[in-house]
Amino acid sequence: MRLLRISKQGRKALLFLAPTIALLLFFFIWPVLLSFYYSFTDMTLSGSKSTNYNFIGFNHFVRMFSDPLFRTSFANTLIFLIFSAIIGQLILGFFIALLMRNKNRHFRSFVGMTILVGWIMPEIVCSFCWVAFFSKSGTLNTALTSLGILSKPISWLVSFPMVSVIIANIWHGTAFSMLQFQAALDDIPADVEASAAIDGANRWQKITRIIIPMIKGTIMTDAILITLKTLGVFGLIYAMTGGGPGTKTTTLSIYMYRQAFGSYQMGYGTAIAMVMLILGIVLSACYVKFSKIKL
């Protein structure tokens, strides 16, 4: 990849990166650093501590260890992440992309479009659809009772809130993974699979021994991107359940919001956000290590 001499490259690269760096510094990195600083203070959104806040070191981070709500939201975040991102979006997306290969073009674009609708739908609209779907007199109950599966309607958002938001998030996000896998699968040369068939590999072996190793990079990139994205999911859950009932669907991003904007504890709220940042880094590092792929 050596197109130019390195010395010159560095300077040229900077020129290309300059607009991005300027934009990121001003609108992103600077506010992030400020948030980082706030997380070590007792700043509040209103009240006397809103202007006269103090530096309190690691107090917030120590407090988290004994904060049962923090522990609950941490656990909820992991559950939400594993089921909606990894099991849901990644595996379902891969499965759909795999099935879609070599299918009729019109059929492919029809199926693709139905899955994409959820993706391009604004979060808030998405949550209205799902609230209506899961509500006591909603679509799901109407269907299940008329089929005789349920004798009386269940209020899903109250009885199974986590399952409900996970399903909604899978619906909202699967298209992203599906599109990536479709592209990656298209790139697998036909002869590789053909030779595997000659060797007598069955369907399952073909997937695990040939296809997955070949698109390992895509799997990992996808895993990182959807993990980071799912960590930050806020609007969907907030509009569907508000993090409730109680704390049943309070993830870290909901808890962060409740602390910073609901209880005005800006300092503690930003400290929670910093934990989310660390969690994102740790998870991504795990994926990289696990898949032994260099980016």
Partner: peptide, 29 residues
């Protein structure tokens, strides 16, 4: 295209920043 030394770190850093909820930086913004 270029063989830049720190590019992997640059990429890591910017992608990790996305795990920060936007709500957390709205007040500084």
């Amino acid at each position: 295209r270029y063989d830049l030394k720190g590019k992997r770190y640059f990429l890591y850093i910017i992608i990790f920043m996305t795990s920060l909820p936007i709500n957390a930086i709205l007040v500084p913004v």
